[in-house]
Design a protein around this nucleic acid. Structure first.
Lengths: 180, 180
DNA sequence: AGACAATACGGAGAGTGTCTCCGTTTTGCA
DNA sequence: TGCAAAACGGAGACACTCTCCGTATTGTCT
């Protein structure tokens, strides 16, 4: 990749991260281009779709997922505690900006999604949690199912602007359901 | 209301119902206006926002909710059966078109939402179910919490185009969590 | 019936966002 | 240094939302 191309790409991703966080996933792409000091054409050449840009933006985020998983797994306590702790972490991770819980959750399980890379990280994290809890969990739970349950809660929390206090009881219900 | 106004209003709602179903909640309003044979101004005068139109479209739908509730409550069987039956019904009701689960679920609990009328019907239905199940349910469950849990599942199912087979296990987890 | 407010209509057009096309500029290699 | 390939960038075509206001329709009063 040519040096100027790389430079522009990096700049776009950096600006996009910030704009997405401020204005949500629906922020105008032209605005991102302008703030990055490039033309619209340049942005669209690097990232043909919004999701492609989103994927690039979430690169750093994906690393954080691993760290967070380790932390939740290191947590000493009974299964319910571990599960709840992970769920809270998960909701936090997946709610990077307005609209992201829905995007990430629906991309999960779609083999053609441009942001699939990042979803696999989450899937892997869920798999680890499932493995750690072992027999305490109801049998036959798949990582993607866990992702959908918690992703659903996170999506509702996102679109309805719920605070942690309102979300926690919902997570508790799901946790108990999974431990049943 | 003047006769021509009533005529146009009815026509718009009729067309909107059909277009929403075909193209989802995001369908262009101008297209609805055109298909209804009215100008854009007329549509926007009758329904200042998309949600206002959505609300009108869901009028008939709201009646169906009552019927469905009665049916689910009449269901003989253990609590789990009743709950699961109601959840399946709920998901069906709330998924009238692409985007509607998210809309309806987030409107629930927002006192200023234009589609609040319709959400109250669902809230009332949930309250009835909760009452019917009584002590079998975990204590302190609010209708709106139930709406958020199932609405979350429905939203994920909607955006990820899941079929009933994939949704059912998720509902089972939530049901067991609520019965815990 | 005829006339006159009041009410409603409708579409042009301004504002905003998406995405492409292509003439111009930059880069890297020989 | 020169030149072809690669990348740029912004004008503009297209799409959707929403408003404004001149025109048409309706209901009422005589």
């Amino acid at each position: 990749m040519r040096a100027d191309a790389q430079r522009n790409r990096d700049k776009i991703v950096e600006v996009a991260r910030q704009v997405f966080r401020e204005k949500g996933y629906d922020a105008p792409l032209d605005e991102i281009a302008k703030k990055a000091g490039v033309g619209a054409g340049t942005l669209y050449r690097h990232f043909p779709s919004r999701d492609d840009l989103h994927d690039a933006v979430m690169q750093a985020w994906a690393d954080g997922v691993d760290v967070a998983t380790e932390k939740a797994l290191a947590h000493e306590g009974d299964s319910r505690e571990v599960l709840l702790d992970w769920f809270r972490t998960y909701v936090g991770l997946v709610s990077s900006y307005k609209g992201s819980p829905a995007k990430i959750t629906s991309a999960m399980g779609d083999p053609d999604s441009p942001i699939r890379t990042k979803c696999q990280v989450l899937s892997a994290a869920n798999a680890k949690v499932i493995e750690r809890l072992g027999d305490a969990l109801r049998p036959g739970i798949e990582p993607v199912q866990m992702a959908r349950l918690i992703g659903g809660v996170a999506t509702v929390a996102d679109t309805a602007s719920l605070d942690a206090e309102a979300v926690d009881p919902l997570l508790a219900v799901v946790a108990d359901g999974l431990l049943a």
